[in-house]
Design a protein around this nucleic acid. Sequence first.
DNA 1: CGCTTTTGACCTGCGC
DNA 2: GCGCAGGTCAAAAGCG
Length: 302
Amino acid sequence: MEQDKDKPLQPPPHPPATTAEFAGDSSWPLGADDSDGSYFYSVDRNSSILSDFGWNLEPVQSNRIGSDGDGLWVPAHPDLTGSVEPIGTAAAVGTSSRSNNQSVSTSSSEDPPEKSTVSDEKPPLEIPRKSKKKGQKRIRQPRFAFMTKSDVDHLEDGYRWRKYGQKAVKNSPFPRSYYRCTNSKCMVKKRVERSSEDPSIVITTYEGQHCHHTVGFPRAGIFSHESAFAGCPLAPTMSQIYYPVQMQRENATLSSSVSQPCQTHDEVGGSRNVIAADELLQHPPIDEGLLGDIVPPGMRNR
DNA sequence: CGCTTTTGACCTGCGC
DNA sequence: GCGCAGGTCAAAAGCG
């Protein structure tokens, strides 16, 4: 928070270097957005999306995988060392019947953060606390999710998070935790849960975009991904790999055009796939032998 | 003392 | 309409 004031709001742009395709998603109930066929995004699009999230992602050539347009993106954030995937045009999420023509890249910046709206309307004390939410449509922010093979649930990503809830997840012995960015002006949230199939895999879902830069890295606005990794306390201890989370409805759409079994790629040897959330949860653990190759350069030397 | 986490209750959306 | 599951709130407790 301290560093938020003197930093520009947007991470430095990074030229897209791959031809990866990303798909929109809807882990949350989506509206009509998926009907416009906008499941797939070009890399330019995706880059924009991720920038909108505040994630300073950069395509790493050595980590690029997928000659069929399925590239791997390595985030500049220390723990986001894998492919990430924008999940849906969240502006339309949860408000399916309303204006959902917004693009991903513009939605979150234009959406009044749901929380801010709520917090601005303090109900009288007599009114039950939840009444303030009545009549207010939830407006979902852009999301992306990824899987991480990690011992720790809450990964360091350079931002500070406050836990605001935890719920038991059906069919899973592991609870799901809900975090919110501690920056009062930042409405980004994230969910963290462990895969019931493989407890070593953490599924993290981000929602919204940061309106500030990381607090963990003083030069967040200008750091490269390598320098970021250099400062990552978890880097040496974590084996990380991320599966982009492709959820629910797009599953059918994507499966025919994008999805492939985890495949080994020439340069990285990493495996990557675009799969549905359900599928994702059932996905077998990553081959440990591949992890080393998919870890960004800054982490490899450790 | 301030911030974070825990936790039970409440709200909302969706499927049946 | 009802029930369920997910998501959120906010008071209380914990911690540094």
